[in-house]
Design a protein around this nucleic acid. Sequence first.
DNA 1: GTCTATAGAGTGATAGAC
DNA 2: GTCTATCACTCTATAGAC
Lengths: 182, 182
Amino acid sequence: MAVRSDSVPALAGVFRTYGFDGASLAVISEHTGLGKGSLYNFFPRGKEEMAEAVLDQVGAWFMTEVFDPLRVESVSPAERITAMFDAVAEHFGSGNRICLFGAFALGNERARFGARVQGYFDAWISALTTALECTDDPAGLAEECVSTIQGALVLSRALDDSLVYTRLSGRLRDRLLARMEL
Amino acid sequence: MAVRSDSVPALAGVFRTYGFDGASLAVISEHTGLGKGSLYNFFPRGKEEMAEAVLDQVGAWFMTEVFDPLRVESVSPAERITAMFDAVAEHFGSGNRICLFGAFALGNERARFGARVQGYFDAWISALTTALECTDDPAGLAEECVSTIQGALVLSRALDDSLVYTRLSGRLRDRLLARMEL
DNA sequence: GTCTATAGAGTGATAGAC
DNA sequence: GTCTATCACTCTATAGAC
């Protein structure tokens, strides 16, 4: 039997492709394979609740797979940073998939989901700052790192070339690792 | 009497705030002060033509105020770069306004306006590459610069703090200028 | 008469909610 | 599937400039 959480990955794909406003219930119904009745059974508050569920599930994935590992003291800071870039590249399909939080930050969606968006970026920068404590400017570099990844996703998407993402994130990673050796 | 181009700045504000899908004719009519009759008189193909007009006007502004000055050989490369950061900060309200091309790149709008989005970023990177010819990696740094500005706009918006933009673009500018002195 | 600008009632289609 | 609201858009009407 289908459960609510099973439909969240499909919902994520729809919101990534169409945005919040562009994702009609007809499109959602088609991509999830669920009728409107089922959708309102799982998400009584409608589309807004669907998007919240997506944001929460993606946010939870980043927490366990990206943010928490950045604070594990038994792993060297350089290895933590390298692992972060690997996990992030995997999640964003090396530039082929956008960041929902970034897209929602730029779009009209920010009005509805601003708190979740802010929480995601705060958590990322905070975790990165911990891993970069061995540098001379942990908070500044963490902010720069998160921002650069978002920029790489924008540019990669704009130029329709995932190599742009790979190139930019590789440069960033190397620059951070160099700063950690000081 | 009103002319078509007078309404474009108001249209730009609407699309920036609501996105393409979120900007209904009712909202557009309200913010421009024009009835539907006037809007369809100026833009016979409707919303799509309105957005194209906005993109074209913003693109033209960047061409004359940002891209072309980057190629003026009578000005030193360092001064050209500094002037670019000033003009860009002015246009983006130091992080308070988003980049329409960046937002359209991440959103559903890319399907309709992808060519214009790609042209904007190509032109920017190309012009910057010229100004950075005195460095060891003009094209790479140009790509990195444009991407970082976009990332700064995303993060600034996400955290609702324009100081994030000011801080990140200042760091980037200084880093570029340092690379030019080599 | 012709052209551009304006206003807004009215169209069918489709939206989200239930 | 049914509901109502709203969507993008069309059309008619009217105004003044030439």
